[in-house]
Design a protein around this nucleic acid. Structure first.
Lengths: 214, 214, 214, 214
DNA sequence: AATGAATGAGAATTCATTCAT
DNA sequence: TATGAATGAATTCTCATTCAT
């Protein structure tokens, strides 16, 4: 007697999940190029053939990872956007991003690595591009937050915020031990997530520093 | 008649230089993995065999690039360190770094990619590590600059500066067109390269933001 | 309640037939090598597993096709042989063969392809051989027809007839459109299926053409 | 010291020839599908890698064979066409074709096998098509020969001739031993390569046999 | 009888590296 | 010094076949 449709579906999903998890582990650990399909199959405890039953090839495994990442990031932004006021929203972003990298630096490292792939690497460029596009989309949302916050030049402010945030995360992946996570978070928050901030500093600001213009 | 020793040496150096330039061009353009030795030899207009005469293999070509990068960065830091006052020093760093990325985003992108290589990629990890170590060294020097500047928490300040700087450069490699380079530079400068800055802002700082504590 | 023996058998036969038809369609369409077991199962709307329940493997599907072909050809020859006079017999063969190819060139093409399989292809050679043997058997029967027809050298005449017939069919599979089917048929018939023929032409025949010697 | 350009070229040509010969031997012996690249390399006594240095893949080896075949066939037709009178031309074709198959039945068998490849086999169809096109081209030339010979319906006559010739060759590949080669050749010649032929037989021809109509 | 998940052997292809010249 | 022919290990991918359910 054959298995029921549902049971098969369950088995399929479980296998796909197992493979995907194995790929993710290895890609993050050893990198995309350094991981062979054989490695993935072995890690997932299945045969190469089965892997190909579920995924078209190595590239599709990466595609799935990228897709999931995009959804993950989008979810964070949506949660942030749903918060009542822009201060909380930005705080949420800072905390979420930094905590996430803190818990799992290799993951951020992996995606940053992917995003910095040379544009002419025909295998990876597409995924790099996808991640970049998602970043752009987030950036738009962020700009609105700074607008609501009353920033004089919300775009510039948002860019500056993103730079500081990603720079911080980048550092975290490189100097894992002893990184003053909390302090950096606090600084980001006091710098960017305070309503009064710009107004306060406005009185001292200089003409050539538009985002902090008086 | 045979060439003189000097001439031979000159020829060797020229050849090595040609090869190295070819490798650099291609690695940056297509990435390390996507570039084959054949590609490099062709780009350098020499034979594969000759390439192996000068370099032990593909990896050594990368090693040379990393070495040169380290020297380049070190030179910038030394020049900066030689300037009279910390404000100028930091200004010099900001301008140098950002202008450099602005002129050639792919180069920064390449090295950032290398630096974010997974730690278990046995081929690339060593070079990634080297770059990271050099960054650490720079960081020490930077800390001294902030110390001389009178920063209350020079280490934290330096870290924050580095984060902002690298974050900015990272963004530049991803959104090349229309990036407000000058504005971002000005902001970095007004934020970090002013003596009065911390003092000024000290009066508004909050307890939970240690780096800006009075 | 369980099915009766007969019903079971009926189901089995129906399934086998379905599978075999699917295989035949695909083999003829795409060729034996280019058709996968998966393709066949899908075309037959059954599972791979069931296919293996009925047939030992891909090769057996081919064996069945070959067997059926042999029976088909044999039936034609038997019908022909049952006709009253050799003229009708040969006419029947010509008409039957050419019409069949005309209606379905791909089928003849397929079997011709199989028959021209290199002898050392261990998978297909056996089937190629079987078809050839059947051809030999037919040839014997044909020879008798030419004998009854009064041909001077029945074997040679039969060979010539077979060559002309198979040559015509071969051409038909290669130039489907615009092939002068009826004219070719008529020519074959007037050349080979007339009692008077050889006698008639005998008067002009030359010494070096033994089969047409008076 | 490197080899001279010429020497390299010689080496390259020799290797290509060796590979091509090996491929040809095996393809003819075991068939295209049953021959692996490994087989070819082994037969040629070289490494797989070298094979790929010279040929893009298995398919290109086939392409070369097809190309050579086309040239070979074309050369025969050109020589034939250069003969003084159509009788000699057709004689030359008959003798050339049949002798060739007689000496090497497997070769004709191979190309016939290729030409009868199912049209939907995407790998082989293109080559099958090429051979067919070349056959068409030859057919045109042949028609002119029959025209010069004064045939009433040169096209039909040419088709009939081709059918008889290819049919004969087909038979030869299937019943190698004891095939009455010379007799068949003589018959073809007396049937098709005689000026008087059609006129002679014209008196007996029947209405329904257009190519032999008076 | 029926299913399709799972296997693994085998095929094609790439490419860093070596070596004879 | 300089060349490029030659190698073979590593990798991706396919598919006939098995087997638990």
């Amino acid at each position: 007697m054959p298995r029921t449709k549902e049971e098969n579906e369950r088995i399929r999903q479980a296998a796909k999940e197992k493979i995907h998890a194995a790929a993710m582990t290895l890609f993050i650990q050893k990198g995309y190029h350094a991981t062979s399909i054989d490695d993935v199959a072995k890690q997932a405890n299945i045969s190469k053939g089965l892997l190909y039953n579920y995924y078209k090839g190595k590239e599709e495994l990466l595609a799935v990872m990228v897709q999931l990442r995009i959804e993950e990031v989008r979810a964070v932004m949506e949660t942030a956007a749903s918060l009542a006021n822009p201060m909380d929203q930005l705080c949420y972003i800072v905390n979420g991003a930094i905590d996430h990298v803190h818990r799992n630096p290799a993951v951020y490292r992996f995606y940053l690595n992917l995003q910095t792939q040379p544009e002419n690497d025909h295998v990876l460029a597409a995924y790099s591009e996808q991640l970049n596009q998602e970043s752009s989309r987030q950036f738009e949302v962020q700009c609105q937050m700074f607008e609501r916050l009353g920033a004089k030049e919300p775009k510039l402010r948002s860019l500056s915020f993103s730079a500081a945030l990603h720079g911080t995360m980048q550092m975290m992946t490189m100097y894992t031990k002893g990184f003053p996570v909390e302090q950096m978070k606090q600084q980001m928050i006091s710098e960017y997530c305070a309503l009064s901030h710009e107004t306060d500093r406005g009185s001292h600001s200089r003409k050539d520093s538009p985002s902090k213009a008086p």
